[in-house]
Design a protein around this nucleic acid. Structure first.
Lengths: 231, 231
DNA sequence: CGTCATTTTGATAGCACTCAACGAAGGTGG
DNA sequence: CCACCTTCGTTGAGTGCTATCAAAATGACG
């Protein structure tokens, strides 16, 4: 169904999933890298829309995104889908008790490293740095989840502006903001319809905050007016 | 301003903040208890609406709720307030990097134990059980936050039904569901107005799912129809 | 019993959803 | 290379859910 891109596997680069200024995860990240590489499985390539982990699966592995974008989502009985988070290269995710409460799917063609949970926890029990790193990573994701929950009770304009702004930063403040995922995915992440998302972007374009270069590429013309829509 | 209840301090009971079936936090909880009691400060009594920690404060302490209900919230520039979570007795909260990103306030008169973060992490680095417990606690809270984010993109009816159902369970499935916090707090937690909250409960009463015994006390008449509103 | 905070109910408005159609982009096959 | 098709995104018209504004009812407390 989905067409594949070139199938070359990029080198595994472990970007820290926590802010560099975090005190405990700090110091010898090499230790963590070595520990991780001892128990990794993969890298595994997934094509767009492939399911990486299914809601209800036992959570034997954690996932480290190497390239592409992964969405963590849930589909309800009535067919509605919500995307809780997008994970970008360097992000570690899959924290849960026993079973995954959410599905993980490739939002773009992607490469993912699987890390055996039990082995990781076992290493963590011997290596303080690993334990600190894991705690910092979960804390970091907790904070993201809380901020996202906060976002969901705000206006469509604020949600879109915040999302675009965050994504732009996460992608490294490039000249253009290239959206790696579909509008449908973004809408499902923000609890909006694609129509509302599209209209909101149109409004932002009219107000001069951004400009559509193409469908998936935005030019952030005025970061201030983007930020203005936030809060 | 707020009237105080009787000022007796209950005995410190550490109820596990994670499901009992979690494999790693398991085993010797006594170890954790002893470790915690070695670095605790308090218990401290707060009256309703007292601020326990302020957004932006350095996160030197974690908090363990002994009694009462704590709300973790953020107030926006326009005066809107959102409550990310309520913490009940036994809950451990305050996970964040460096600074609190949310305020913690007493939603009712409450007693809280303060645990020095650095000391706790230091103990965790020597005691695997403590480290596992902390990781399990954050993972557990992460899952709650994600579920709450999911909830926020659903209808008012679903949000209220889910909240009442969850709270009922968390409070121990008593005969009556006594709401410990104000409707305003609940509304701010669910991203609704108090009017919509009230109307939604009225609808649920009309459909026979619950009955108002008094303002703050509900009788869950039909758990099935409550659950029906969910999803 | 009066005052104040809180909750409930009513009327109206607005934002986001739904349904529908059009337009753009990319892939496929003739 | 072009016609066709399919998917995705954009725009428009109308509806519905939830917010807002206003006021009455309930309850707590002195």
């Amino acid at each position: 169904m989905t067409k594949a891109g070139p199938a070359k596997i990029p080198a595994v680069g472990v970007k820290p999933a926590v802010p560099a200024d975090y005190p405990d995860a700090f110091g010898d990240e090499q230790t963590v890298k070595r520990a991780l590489s001892a128990l990794r499985r993969g890298p595994i390539r997934f094509y767009r829309d492939n399911v990486i982990a299914c809601e209800g699966d036992s959570a034997d592995y954690l996932f480290l995104v190497v390239s592409g974008v992964i969405r963590s989502c849930k589909t309800f009985q009535n067919g509605t889908r919500s995307i809780v988070a997008f994970y970008l290269p360097g992000d570690l995710f899959g924290w849960t008790d026993l079973k995954h409460s959410l599905s993980a799917e490739a939002a773009t063609d992607a490469v993912v490293l699987l890390l055996k949970r039990s082995a990781l926890l076992s290493i963590a029990s011997r290596e303080n740095r690993v334990a600190s790193y894991l705690l910092a990573a979960t804390t970091n994701e907790l904070q993201r989840a809380q901020e996202h929950a906060l976002l969901m009770s705000r206006s469509a304009k604020c949600r879109v502006a915040t999302f675009l702004s965050d994504l732009w930063r996460r992608l490294g403040d490039a000249k253009y903001l290239d959206l790696p995922m579909s509008h449908q995915d973004i809408a499902d992440h923000l609890g909006l319809t694609i129509e509302t998302l599209s209209r909101t972007i149109t409004d932002m374009e009219r107000s001069g905050a951004v400009k559509r270069v193409s469908c998936r590429r935005l030019l952030v013309k005025n970061q201030a007016s983007l930020a203005l829509a936030i809060d």
